[in-house]
Design a protein around this nucleic acid. Structure first.
Length: 217
DNA sequence: TTTCTCGGACAGTCAAGCGC
DNA sequence: CGCTTGACTGTCCGAGAAAA
């Protein structure tokens, strides 16, 4: 990476760093492509477009909300959780002649080898498959539930705020299929999140699948 | 044991170059 | 002029170090 690092980081760690964190639960997405438990291939990593200055300095995962979850965890407010500034791109750099590749196709910088673009890639909006066997599924929070939490103000002028989004990573299945074989449900949120947004929460009622995506408006 | 630091892999962006 | 390529820049994983 190209950023100059400063020794006096903000001293903040990532939510998922601690070895005590239940690794079967992520409160925001890490990888865009869902990989079944039987596959050992790692999915493509997701990145936010613009990390906040705190996460950037600490080289830690950020999320689009402001304050981001990491800042929420450490008690930073909107005033401190600021978008980092991006450098202007250099123009006029000369390049040598292009090497020809075998075969044609869409942008192949990252997909030359391996299977072709599969339908399992989420659409640009960031929806996740909910088909049986999927390891990552959106929690079907209703607007009612979202309304329990503070609206995250948008930094884009004219754009209204939005809610934090949460996704659950389902733990790998046991060998023996069947509902009885699932381990007991893990704690839904890390204690740090619970401290920031204490219960009670309305109980989650699974909704009938009406489409490929969870219901959220 | 927990928190912090940071090297480097990975991902996204976009202008130069290419070919129709 | 649209598509491809690859340089450039940002994000953040994950391992090791430091602190409590």
């Amino acid at each position: 990476m190209a950023l100059p690092r400063q020794k006096n980081g903000d001293g903040i760690d990532d939510l998922s760093d601690s070895p005590t964190t239940d690794s079967s639960i992520n409160i925001y997405p890490r990888f865009s492509t869902v990989v079944s438990a039987s596959q050992s291939v790692r999915a493509k990593r997701m990145q936010v477009k613009n990390a906040c200055t705190k996460c950037q300095k600490a080289c830690k995962k950020c999320d689009p909300a402001r304050p981001c979850l990491r800042c929420v965890r450490y008690g930073f407010g909107v005033e401190e959780c600021l978008n980092s500034q991006r450098k202007e791109r250099r123009k006029g750099a000369k390049r040598g002649p292009y090497k020809k590749r075998n075969g044609r196709g869409k942008h192949t910088a990252h997909s030359d080898e391996g299977e072709p673009e599969s339908e399992s890639s989420p659409p640009p909006g960031g929806s996740y498959p909910t088909a049986p066997g999927a390891d990552l599924a959106p929690v079907a929070y209703t607007p009612t539930l979202y309304a329990q939490y503070p609206l995250v103000p948008s930094h884009t002028p004219g754009e209204s705020g939005y809610f934090h989004q949460f996704y659950l990573t389902i733990a790998p299945r046991q060998e023996s299929e069947g509902s009885a074989a699932y381990p007991p449900p893990p704690q839904l949120f890390p204690t740090t999140f619970l401290a920031a947004y204490p219960p009670p929460y309305p109980s989650y009622v699974p909704q009938a699948q009406t489409g490929p995506e969870g219901q959220m408006s």
